[in-house]
């Protein structure tokens, strides 16, 4: 029994990472209609920046703050300079631009940090294992799960219960109308893009103690995150959360119970969901 509880927790901690990445991607998509394929690159950049911060200051918690702020700012600037002129153009050019970001960020990262595999130690407080309800499990992963759940709650409150959240949701539903109401839609776009990249960077910092750092990490989560977004429903917050849970658990149990099919499980789940609910699990009517 313990074995399955532990596997469930493994799925949960993986899901929380997916969720942090998917939310940003999904928000940016819902609002701006842009698929930011460089999302994984911001995740990687965040992880590396977190690594350097943790190395310089010896403080993991500080890197949790610094990396998202800096990468968020980078996202803001990139949106401001490069994406803005392209809003009037088609999807293709926008996506191509984000693909361009991938190459540039990859080169910047490997130039600054090299191509070696690196690791970040979990903070001393969370280094060992902990026992909860009789289950022994790595403390850091407990933290990851807790952090993800708290972040999900905070984001939900922000989006559903605040004025800012209302503006964002309105923007997802109908941007022109929001612009007509006197809200600076351009500024809103930049902020959302920055927020999305900051969340990706946060995911990177959080992932580093479990997954380590290497130059290929930008791509390895991106596909899974795209699947989460599609399964959950494009542009919905709740969709990212439940989509991440579904994919995280499906991937974990799939790889354990039928390892020969480990690679296709999440694609099979996606296909199934799209057949039954082509718009994703949690798309609101009329969206």
């Amino acid at each position: 029994m313990d074995y399955y509880v532990i596997q469930f927790l493994n799925g949960l901690s993986y899901a929380m990472l997916l969720f942090l990445l998917a939310t940003g991607l999904s928000l940016v998509f819902g609002m701006m209609n842009i698929i930011n394929l460089a999302h994984g690159s911001f995740y990687m950049l965040g992880a590396y920046l977190g690594y350097s911060t943790a190395l310089k200051t010896g403080n993991f918690w500080l890197s949790l703050l610094v990396a998202p702020l800096v990468i968020g700012l980078v996202g803001f600037i990139l949106e401001f300079i490069f994406l803005r002129p392209l809003y009037a153009r088609g999807h293709l050019q926008q996506v191509l631009l984000t693909v361009g970001f991938i190459f540039v960020i990859w080169d910047v990262t490997t130039t600054l940090w090299g191509k070696s595999v690196m690791s970040v130690a979990a903070p001393p407080l969370l280094a060992g294992t902990a026992k909860f309800w009789g289950v022994i499990y790595p403390s850091y992963r407990f933290f990851l799960i807790g952090f993800g759940l708290v972040a999900a709650l905070a984001l939900w409150l922000l989006l559903e219960r605040t004025r800012l959240g209302a503006v964002v949701r309105a923007g997802v539903a109908d941007q022109e109308m929001v612009g007509g109401l006197g809200i600076n839609i351009k500024m809103l776009f930049s902020s959302i893009f920055a927020f999305g990249t900051a969340l990706a960077a946060l995911g990177g910092v959080l992932a580093a103690p479990v997954l380590g750092l290497h130059p290929g990490m930008d791509m390895e989560l991106l596909i899974a995150v795209l699947i989460v977004v599609v399964v959950g429903g494009l542009g919905t917050f709740a969709g990212s959360f439940w989509g991440a849970l579904l994919i995280g658990e499906a991937d974990t149990f799939g790889k354990i119970l039928i390892p020969e099919w480990g690679l296709v499980i999440i694609y099979a789940v996606m296909t199934l969901v799209l057949l039954l609910k082509p718009e994703g699990l949690l798309v609101k009517k009329g969206a």
């Binding site: 074995y3 901690s13 993986y14 390895e220 899974a224 790889k255 354990i256 480990g262 690679l263």
Partner: peptide
């Protein structure tokens, strides 16, 4: 004989299997 699928990101599930 445990074969881990290529492209596995999280090794936690396999470590749980090793433990068992």
């Amino acid at each position: 004989e445990m074969y881990i699928p290529l492209g596995t990101v999280d090794y936690g599930p396999f470590v749980a299997e090793v433990k068992r």
